[in-house]
């Protein structure tokens, strides 16, 4: 982990260090086992095609967890993720590169805690936003 981020280090508009992921079909199997999510559209290609999908698709929550990692990597051990909202807008396919991105949209103090609001998104290989979201986090304060 890199050095701890503090509330005073951040300005509205700052970009979160992007996180690049390339989910594979192996990862989808591991996710199914770890999450208990055995929805066949995530492992049965023929079934997925018959349901009008472009093929086996990456579970929304798996890509959502990538956005969670984007945040926890960035806020460090001293920060806390308080809220995470995710809207699964498009399909991510295994084997394609996903880029998790975010930007700080607001900072405020409440009950002596230091809050940031960040807008988040997952960018597919063609630059389209396949997931959009919002995170509310707290950070430690200097001094």
């Amino acid at each position: 982990m890199t050095g701890q981020l503090y509330y005073q280090d951040i300005a509205v508009g700052d970009e979160i260090t992007p996180l690049v992921k390339q989910p594979t079909s192996r990862q989808l199997v591991m996710w199914a086992g770890a999450s208990g999510d055995f929805n066949p559209i995530h492992y049965d290609k023929d079934l997925a095609l018959s349901r009008g999908l472009p093929g086996v698709i990456v579970p929304g929550q798996l890509a959502g967890c990538f956005l969670g990692q984007l945040i926890t990597d960035w806020i460090g051990d001293g920060g806390r993720l308080k809220k995470l909202s995710l809207s699964y807008k498009g399909m991510n396919l295994p084997g394609k590169t996903l880029t998790c991105r975010g930007r700080v949209t607001k900072k405020y103090l409440e009950d002596s805690e230091h809050y940031l609001v960040c807008s988040l998104w997952v960018e597919g290989a063609a630059g389209e936003k396949t997931i959009t979201g919002t995170a509310v986090v707290t950070l430690p304060s200097r001094g």
């Binding site: 349901r51 995710l86 699964y88």
Partner: peptide
Amino acid sequence: FEQIQKLLAASSGTLLHGSTEL
């Protein structure tokens, strides 16, 4: 969530995830 999926899978053709608010 796997319990919810199991419940819905019994009577759904296809299940997609729309959103999560944690």
